[in-house]
Simulated assay, not measured.
Amino acid sequence: MKKGYVFNIQKYCLHDGEGIRTVVFFKGCPLSCPWCSNPESQSFNREIIRKNSLCIKCSAADCYKCSKNPESCPTGALEYVGQEYTIEELLEIIKEDMVFYDSTEGGVTLSGGEVLSQGEFACALLKRVKELGINTAIETSGYGNFETLRALAEYTDTILFDLKIMDNEKAQKIIKANSEVIKNNLRGLVSLGHKVIPRIPLIPGYTMEEDNIEEIKEFVISIGIKEVHLLPLHQYGSSKYRGINKKYELKDINPPKSEEIDEVRSIFESSGIKVVIGG
């Protein structure tokens, strides 16, 4: 049986769709967003992450030995990131919280990494989840094959779709993505009548430039979008970069102030678009 590659399964989530949800995080992403809060999700390979708060700074020799076998780390500071699951294994975990889905109108969200990168497996999983009567959502950068995206959408109640950098030259330079592919995929989903909510990360110096926000606004208006979610930068995942020995480029960038967030909110609301902070 085909397996999916997952790096985390998080229960009792409140910000990845409606109600209480179980979020399955797929490993691997074609983008390289410097603000990514889950840098361990980017590689398509299994990795070892070090939890610095648990590290007692053993000798270099011991740490090297443990890095070959994380289970031997005396404090549990080292662990593998990435595990294969069958659909049946994931369904057993998902079904443990049916009572919460039913009582809060919650459900299951597939996130990443990028769910499109494991589209065949994700589609099969969503189909089985829907057969159980569970609400479904996906979080996606929209960067991938449209036919795969359309197949996923057939079993998805809500699509949370990132819009980051609209200028194609800047997008390719900063996040390694073709923004035209992303825009075309979003346009295609909306034209098919799917429930799609754009989510805009608010990153000072990257996505919050006035011309970028205006271009996003004009684009969502042009395709009939009525609601967007704004996701202000946070630094919660910064320690993970050290854990996988990767440089964090945004360590000197402060999260946007409340008045800056309100300015972006007003740009959309003044055009009749509902705005949710977070989501």
Rank of each mutant, 00 (worst) to 15 (best):
G113N: 06
L132N: 09
Q42N: 10
T136I: 06
Y101F: 11
V129Y: 02
S41Y: 08
T86N: 07
E92K: 13
Q118I: 06
L116K: 01
S103N: 13
D62Q: 14
S72W: 11
P74L: 08
R50C: 13
R46T: 12
K130M: 09
T86W: 06
M98V: 12
I94Y: 00
K57L: 11
N52W: 14
K51Y: 15
I87F: 09
S59L: 03
F44T: 06
I48V: 15
E139W: 02
A61C: 12
N135Y: 06
R46P: 03
I134S: 00
G76E: 06
R50Q: 13
P74E: 07
A60H: 13
L91S: 02
K65Y: 09
G76R: 02
F121K: 03
C55E: 04
L54E: 10
Q83V: 07
K51T: 12
Y85L: 06
A77W: 04
I93S: 00
G113D: 10
Q118N: 04
F44M: 00
L78I: 08
A60I: 13
L126P: 01
N45P: 02
C63G: 04
N38W: 09
N135S: 14
C55S: 05
F121H: 04
L91Q: 01
L132A: 09
L54M: 12
C63D: 00
G112V: 05
P70G: 10
R50A: 11
N52A: 15
I48F: 08
C63T: 05
T109I: 06
N38C: 09
N45K: 14
N135K: 12
C55G: 03
S103A: 14
E79I: 06
C73R: 01
V115W: 00
G112S: 05
N69G: 09
R46G: 08
G76F: 06
E71A: 14
A61W: 11
Y64N: 11
E96C: 15
L78S: 00
V99L: 13
T104A: 05
E89I: 10
T136P: 05
G106D: 00
G82N: 05
G107I: 03
E92L: 11
Q83W: 09
N135I: 07
T104P: 05
S53P: 01
A60M: 13
V81D: 00
K65S: 10
A124W: 04
